[in-house]
Design a protein around this nucleic acid. Structure first.
Length: 150
DNA sequence: CGTTGGATGGGCT
DNA sequence: GCCCATCCAACGG
C-alpha cells in the first residue's frame, strides 16, 4: 500500500484467495477492486473461475458470477502474487483504461465497506463506491442508495 | 430467496 | 495462536 500511486498490491486472503488493490495518493492509501464488468474473454474467465471451484465439473457459471467479488475477479483475470507491485502505467500485461463515454454519467453510490466488521471508526465510513444499478456489483446496499443523487 | 459452516496459509503478536 | 475487505456447497423457506 505504501507505494507509488498506480502500483498493484496483491495479497493472499483466507489462505486461498487473492485480493487486488491499487496504491493511490497518500501514505498507505489504496483501492481494493471488489468487482468488474467483464467486457471480453468471458469464456476464458469462466474456465479460470471453474478450475478453482470444488466440483470443477459442475454447472457453468453465469456471466454475473465471473467478477462479482474481490477474489472472483482475481481468479477470472488469473491475478496472483506475481502481479504484486507491478506498475500499472508501465506493465505490458496489466493496465487501467477509462471506460468509453456513455450517454450519461451513472450515479455513484457511496456505501459502507464489506467484510471488515466493526474494526474501528473507519469501518463505518462510506468508502466503498459502485455504479448504481450495475448488475456486476458484488453487494448492493439499498440503504446507501436512498441518499444517492441520480 | 435466506443462512451456515468448512477450506486454507502467510504474517504478525 | 489468531486475524484476514472470501467463496462455495448444502441446506431451509
Amino acid at each position: 500500500m505504501f507505494m507509488k500511486p498506480g502500483t498493484l498490491y496483491v495479497y493472499l486472503i483466507y489462505g486461498m484467495y487473492f485480493c487486488m488493490n491499487v496504491s493511490s495518493r497518500g501514505d498507505g492509501a489504496c483501492v481494493l477492486l471488489r468487482a468488474l464488468e467483464p467486457l471480453g474473454g468471458l469464456e476464458t474467465m469462466r474456465q479460470l473461475r471453474s478450475t478453482y471451484r470444488k466440483g470443477s465439473a459442475s454447472r457453468a457459471l453465469k456471466d454475473r458470477e465471473l467478477c462479482s467479488g474481490p477474489s472472483k475477479l482475481c481468479q477470472a483475470l488469473a491475478i496472483d502474487k506475481s502481479f504484486d507491485q507491478r506498475d500499472l502505467t508501465e506493465d505490458k500485461a496489466v493496465w487501467l483504461e477509462h471506460s468509453p463515454p456513455g450517454p450519461r454519467e451513472p450515479a455513484v453510490v457511496a456505501a459502507a465497506r464489506v467484510g471488515i466488521g466493526n474494526a474501528g471508526e473507519w469501518a463505518q465510513k462510506p468508502l466503498r463506491f459502485y455504479l448504481q444499478g450495475s448488475p456486476w456489483v458484488s453487494v448492493v446496499d439499498r440503504v446507501a442508495e436512498q441518499g444517492t443523487q441520480v
